[in-house]
Design a protein around this nucleic acid. Structure first.
Lengths: 238, 238
DNA sequence: ATTATCTATAGATCTATAGATAATGC
DNA sequence: ATTATCTATAGATCTATAGATAATGC
């Protein structure tokens, strides 16, 4: 019964309906595998970003791709595994890019790194990545924001993003030699909250501001965020 | 089968096991009703704060209280209704208190309101409420943070918190007469992100800082947040 | 009499696995 | 031969409702 529906879905509109891709079935098995993996991850990323781990069923994901639920198990063992794969797929790219940007800034700044400089490297690099990466990257950003305050998500954040954040902390400490570690960590806590709120794009600021601001206007945020936060850090000095 | 288990649970340890209260069954029906409602809301609040709407089953809630799932339907119709009731229960208190604090500050400040003054009224009042309110209020704070970036939660935020936020905006505009609305709204966007990150108490900052900071140290945050954010606002001037 | 609480159960999912079938790969 | 995909199905929930029972209320 349910099987018949799913079958119809997969035969009818087929996988092409979901993403722009997949016009013709790929030839080699390697290609086919790669395409299926990517389509599954894209669909899961989108759905998890909207509804969270528990709000999405494997059937939702399968239907969005136009495949059978069982294929998800074939490729990803179970739901948790799929979730972690979604997180991991792009985590290396964002953390790598920010790491490079921070190291480059550190080299440029020499003995006089500034808070604002470090924050530009950290924040702008990331905002650019999402904004320029188009829909998939924006979805990933929303996914990260959405899961960042769940136990599962927080564990993955620790695992994938601690190194970049600690690199940022290292530069901030050099920029603020007379600050306590505590002040700097709380400053970062404020920064990361604002960043997650941005990546989430819930549309709340749009409604609140009556359309003056738009959740997905990352350029507007990039223009303000590092400057705003740097000034905040400076104000913590007593 | 399942029925037998639930029965055993409700007969055995009973409701007293969950919260400190409920030593003796209340006498009147009105009291009984009130107590049941409160216990259900407390349990749901706690669980929703940890796992979100879809991560919690009605059975989880019923088990935590020590009652039958069906009683949840008796009092709250369905799951959505229960969720909204959890949100609504304390929303009026927090938004009311902040509204009073903002109006009082406005009166005190006369013609010269400051950003920092307004933010102290807005933020400190709320942080105090949660911190001094003990566990239930801390759970509510985490609940709000957790659901703030979900569609269901965002709608409730709009509904319950828009008036206070717009009151804050009104004072900020007077404090920053030469600022664009856009700048002020983005500033608020940063503030609210940092606040939600605080209310969530995910423990990420604890792990990241190696124990230097603690997620539930609201006094430490209160000491820094308004000052930090006010300086951020001032830096947006070009 | 009215209200709080429980029993029993319908009906709908959901995750996961075993095993069959249909493709590509040498 | 190997790998991708589907069929069939087990087993475990989950939400919600109808109707019974056990308390309090006049």
């Amino acid at each position: 019964m349910a099987g018949a529906e799913e079958q119809a879905a997969s035969k009818g509109k087929a996988r092409a309906a979901t993403s722009g891709r997949a016009k013709s079935r790929p030839r080699t098995k390697a290609e086919q595998r790669a395409q299926s993996l990517e389509q599954i991850l894209d669909a899961a990323e989108y759905l998890f970003s909207k509804r969270g781990l528990d709000g999405v069923t494997l059937r939702d994901v399968a239907q969005r791709v136009g495949i059978h639920t069982t294929l998800l198990h074939y490729y990803f063992k179970d739901k948790t595994n799929l979730f972690e794969a979604v997180f991991a797929r792009r985590a290396g790219v964002t953390s790598g890019r920010r790491m490079v940007a921070l190291e480059q800034y550190e080299a440029e700044a020499g003995d006089n790194p500034t808070v604002e400089g470090a924050l530009h490297a950290f924040l702008d690099t990331d905002l650019d990545l999402y904004y320029q990466g188009g829909e998939p990257w924006m979805n990933y950003a929303a996914f990260c924001a959405r899961v960042s305050n769940t136990p599962e998500g927080a564990a993955l954040m620790d695992q994938h993003f601690d190194p970049v954040v600690l690199k940022l902390m290292q530069i901030l400490k050099r920029a603020l030699p007379d600050y306590s570690e505590e002040d700097i960590f709380w400053g970062y806590h404020f920064v990361s909250g604002a960043l997650m709120n941005t990546l989430g794009r819930t549309g709340r600021i749009d409604r609140l501001s009556g359309g003056v601001c738009h959740s997905d206007d990352f350029p507007a945020i990039k223009k303000r965020m590092a400057r705003f936060m740097a000034a905040g850090f400076m104000a913590l000095k007593r």
